[in-house]
Design a protein around this nucleic acid. Structure first.
Lengths: 208, 208
DNA sequence: ACCGTACTAGAACGTACGCTCTAGACTCCA
DNA sequence: TGGAGTCTAGAGCGTACGTTCTAGTACGGT
C-alpha cells in the first residue's frame, strides 16, 4: 500500500483520538501526515467521510488483532482481561490521556447523522464481541452467556476509556478490569469443556 | 430562571445528544431554542464553551436525580439496575436511537483539548459513581468493593449507550444490565447490614 | 522516446463558523 | 413620566471549513 495513504491514515487516526471527527480538519490531516489535499482526495475520493470509514476499519482490525495476541499470551482468559485493561490504563497514562480508541468517539458523534460511519463502527464492535465471545465459549461458557459477557466486556472497556480520560486517572480502567474479570470467573462452565481436553480451534488468519 | 435561558439549555442538550459538541453550531442552537445570538451571549458570556459546561452540569444533575428516583422505587438494588438499563434501552428505541447522554459524547470529543469541559464531565461522572456507591454500601458491600462496582456500573452504562446506538439495538443495553446485576448480586455482603435492620440514611435534597 | 497511469501540488470556491457590537424593547420601582 | 437594569435583535467581523479544479511530476512498460 502507498506510504502516503498510510501516512494519511495514521495521522487521521491520531487526530481523531484527540479531537474526534468534527473537531479534526482536513488541513490538520494534510499538515501532520504530511500530504497535500490532492493526495488525500486521490486516495479517498469520498472525502472526509471515506477517510473516517477507512480509519475505523483499519484501527478496528488492529485492535482486534491486539486482543487476540493478548488472549493468546494468557492461558487463563481472566488473566487476559486484567492484562487488557491494565495495558490500556498504562497506555493512557503514558500518552497524557489521549483516547485509545478513535472509533468510540467518532461513533458517538455521528451515529445519528452519518449512517456510513455508524455502520462501520457497528461492524468493528461486532467483531470485537465475536472475538471475546469465542474465547469464552472455548472456556466452556454457554453461547448465550458468552455473548452477553462479551458485549459487557466491550462496553465496559469503551466506558472505561471515557471515565479514565475524563478523570485523567488510569486506575478507573484497572478497577473495571478487575470487576469484569470477577464477572467472567463467576460464570458457570460446562463441566466437559477444558483447554486440556479440547483441541483449540484455529483462529482467523495468522500472520505468515 | 429565565425561560429563554432554559430554552437555550434544553435545545443545546438535545443537539449535543445528536451531533456532539463540535458538530453543533450556535446558529442551530438559536434556531431551535428559539433565541437570538444576543440572548445566548447574554446568558452565557463565555460563549459555546460556557454553554456546554452548563449543559453538562444541568443534565448531569438531572440524570443523577433520575437514578435516585429509580433506586428509591426498587427495594432491591439489583432490580433497580435492571430497571435503569431496560429503561435506557426503551428510551433509545423510542427516540430513533438518539444518544441518551450528551455528556459522554462531549467528554470524549474534548477531553484532550478543553480542560473546562473535561473537568465538568469528570465531576458529573464522580457524582454518579458516588450515588451508586452509597446505595451499594447500604446493601452491606464493603466500601472499596462498592466503589469499584459503582465505577463499573457507570462505565458499562456509557459503553452500553455507545454499542446500542452503533448497532441500533436496545437489547445490547439490556444484556449489559443483566450482567452488571449479576456482578453486583455476586458480591459478598457483610452479614450485619440489611435494609430491614438499618434505618435508611437520608439522601440528598428531596424535592419539597 | 513515448504514453498512460499514478500520484503530487496548491490556488480558489462558496459556505459556515464563533463571536462582537450597537441599538432597541421590555419591566419594575419611584 | 422617567430611568436603570435586563433582555432581545441581528448585521457584520475575520477565520476556517470541505471540496473542486487544473496543472504538473514520476515512472513503469514497450
Amino acid at each position: 500500500m502507498s506510504p502516503t495513504r498510510e501516512r494519511i491514515l495514521t495521522a487521521t487516526n491520531e487526530l481523531f483520538r484527540r479531537q474526534g471527527y468534527n473537531g479534526t480538519s482536513l488541513k490538520q490531516v494534510t499538515e501532520s501526515a504530511p500530504a497535500t489535499v490532492g493526495s488525500l482526495y486521490h486516495f479517498f475520493p469520498g472525502g472526509k467521510e471515506a477517510l473516517a470509514a477507512a480509519v475505523i476499519e483499519t484501527s478496528g482490525a488492529a485492535y482486534r488483532e491486539l486482543f487476540e495476541m493478548i488472549a493468546d499470551a494468557e492461558p487463563n482468559f481472566g488473566e487476559a482481561i486484567i492484562a487488557f485493561f491494565d495495558g490500556a490504563a498504562a497506555v493512557l497514562e503514558g500518552t497524557d490521556f489521549v483516547d485509545i480508541c478513535p472509533i468510540g468517539t467518532v461513533a458517538r458523534e455521528v451515529a445519528s447523522t452519518n449512517d456510513t460511519l455508524r455502520t462501520a463502527a457497528e461492524k468493528v464492535f461486532a467483531s470485537w464481541v465475536d472475538a471475546a465471545e469465542s474465547r469464552l465459549i472455548d472456556e466452556g461458557i454457554a453461547t448465550t452467556e458468552a455473548h452477553e459477557l462479551a458485549v459487557s466486556l466491550v462496553a465496559s472497556l469503551e466506558g472505561g476509556f471515557l471515565l479514565a480520560r475524563a478523570a485523567r486517572d488510569g486506575d478507573q480502567l484497572r478497577v473495571i478490569g478487575r470487576q469484569i474479570r470477577r464477572l467472567v470467573d463467576s460464570t458457570p462452565r460446562s463441566t466437559g469443556a477444558s483447554d486440556l481436553m479440547v483441541e483449540p480451534r484455529p483462529r482467523g488468519k495468522k500472520r505468515s
